[in-house]
Design a protein around this nucleic acid. Structure first.
Length: 190
DNA sequence: CGAAAGATTGCCT
DNA sequence: GGCAATCTTTCGT
């Protein structure tokens, strides 16, 4: 396969995030869909060019990178390092496993399976915003990541959603057959 | 300083 | 399937 990032570590980390629980503010999801971004060598990564927005990606691993998308949404990533490589994993979808009432109240009129379907919706269901930028995910308090699941989930892969560069690199991973996984949409510019 | 693009979403035909 | 909403960030002049 083509390998623009030359960083298999981020792929390992991305697959390893599937099935883990991401705790937000008053709600938590079991991660069912992610995308790997290879940092400075990946044309599709925000870290491909170093800017104020992407600065957090160059920091040590296991911190949260949150950015605003299309003015109205937030998207959450796990920075996976190593430092200066700036790899990260975009959390695209999950199943709400805690605080479902809170998640519902944040997304009125949405079916449960759709509460955290898509990166903007997931951040919304968890109450994540720029206030959470740089959060330490392995600490026992606040926004954090749970332990890996006991049994590895069955994983499918395919091209990343929405990116106009490196659009054919199959670095999107999801739990096979899970109903909370978002629908694939290719970027109109790809 | 103006312009264009964007790791999206939901509603329209 | 197509497109508008919405606004910050980034890039070009």
């Amino acid at each position: 396969m083509s390998d623009p990032g030359g960083t298999p570590e981020v792929v390992e980390r991305a697959r390893g995030l599937l099935g883990r629980v991401l705790h937000g503010h008053g709600a938590a999801v079991r991660i069912t869909e992610v995308e790997a971004y290879g940092g400075v060598l990946d044309p599709a990564s925000h870290a491909y060019t170093r800017t104020p927005r992407s600065e957090i990606m160059y920091a040590p691993a296991w911190r949260l990178y949150v950015y605003r998308s299309y003015g109205m949404h937030f998207c959450a990533n796990v920075v996976t390092g190593p430092t200066e490589t700036a790899s990260a994993v975009l959390v695209r979808a999950g199943e709400v496993v805690e605080g479902i009432e809170v998640a519902r109240s944040r997304r009125p009129g949405v079916k449960d399976v759709m509460l955290a379907r898509g990166p903007g919706n997931l951040a919304r269901a968890l109450g994540l915003s720029l206030d959470d930028l740089g959060a330490e995910l392995l600490t026992p308090e606040g926004v954090r990541l749970g332990d890996p699941p006991d049994t590895d989930p069955r994983i499918s892969c395919g091209p990343r959603v929405g990116v106009s560069k490196a659009a054919d690199v199959p670095w999107r991973f999801w739990v096979t057959g899970d109903p909370t996984v978002s629908a694939y949409r290719r970027s109109p510019r790809a």
